[in-house]
Design a protein around this nucleic acid. Sequence first.
DNA 1: GATGATTTGTACGTATGTATA
DNA 2: ATATACATACGTACAAATCAT
Lengths: 223, 223
Amino acid sequence: MKRVEPEILTRTERLADEIAAAVLSGEFAPGRRLDEAMLAERFGVSRTPVREALRRLASTGLIDLKPRRGATVADATSAQLETLFGAMAEIEAACARLAAMSMTPIERRRLQNLHESMAALARRGDRDEYAAANVVFHACVYSGAHNGILAEFAGGLRRRLAPFRRAQFRTEGRLARSHAEHAVVVAAILACDAVAAHAAMFDHMSLVEDALGRLGAASRASA
Amino acid sequence: MKRVEPEILTRTERLADEIAAAVLSGEFAPGRRLDEAMLAERFGVSRTPVREALRRLASTGLIDLKPRRGATVADATSAQLETLFGAMAEIEAACARLAAMSMTPIERRRLQNLHESMAALARRGDRDEYAAANVVFHACVYSGAHNGILAEFAGGLRRRLAPFRRAQFRTEGRLARSHAEHAVVVAAILACDAVAAHAAMFDHMSLVEDALGRLGAASRASA
DNA sequence: GATGATTTGTACGTATGTATA
DNA sequence: ATATACATACGTACAAATCAT
């Protein structure tokens, strides 16, 4: 059996995840200055991966980055972040719609099997395994849409938002809810119901945005 | 009076622009490997700004970047026309959906005025003027969606498809039909009917594809 | 399948620009 | 306003992984 690619994570990527988690947990408050030396020491790496992680996070809008003036934690209300999540929801929903219409029987079967195998992971609460399987799940939908351009867009957005998505599975009960939402998506796709697939996927993606919205509201309230 | 910030450009940013220009001009063909040392020598800088420029370009989707395997120019131009048009239809439809929900009264008014002014152009059969106005019309919908990322995607697709779209308004009666289709889109957006706006725009874009499909079939038949 | 060449990932030093006293 | 301190942008060296032979 062919294994999915082993998901190589470079130090920069892990760092980006950790910094994002620190920001989302509120440890690094909005407006706080993030200087490279501090981050390097704190996470036990040199400044090079720190720099690259900061660039990556800046592209998602999580932090602001000005030349020669360093990085600060962006206001969680940053329009860019909201925009990214909104675009992601739209494009994933479009992929689900197309997938419902044009997936082959084999692709449908594969999606179903994958979804069922994820039930065990959700029950076990195995966050890492579930997160990995989740990536495959969504990739299935992309490829099932049979549109390389949309898949490319979706993949690009997913990469940009990866730190938030990984952090998200840390919240309690998220796995079970995610799996339940997937079930609705899968049912609609298997039933070839394009409208329902669109709606189900849109809902699923919107919940991530909700979590972030609550975070932003909380930090605004405390200010 | 406060001046806008003087826009300091770091070496990395200038490099990203130059590399992007080389890719878009076709000098760096899709699929081509972009190794850091080559780029560094060619543009007369060290590898550090090259690396950061590549990270930045990867986040826009212009190049592919895999850990330990380097960068390649994203294979976008090899994608089939059908896929491009399909993606375009989906994204335009998504923009129309969002626009129906979130356009401001002023934006709605502007869209309506523009649409009405295009009626005269369609009646006169002024293809060039109509085509120009058509670009503005769709740009209105993008900006009305209030999502910069989707607008960016839509604009990029429109640019890529521009050569194919130019021919389309030559078809007899196409102007009148286009305007009639726009009318449905505008009505749905003004009525804040998200579902109808999505459907109307999707139809509109699909018909464009159809027209081109017939054109392609005709040229193939004559070959 | 092993080995060497090439290229990326990482560490760290230096210079320049920014902010502060 | 000038100087001082400090953080960033860039350059370079080394290590590790990939690929070509």
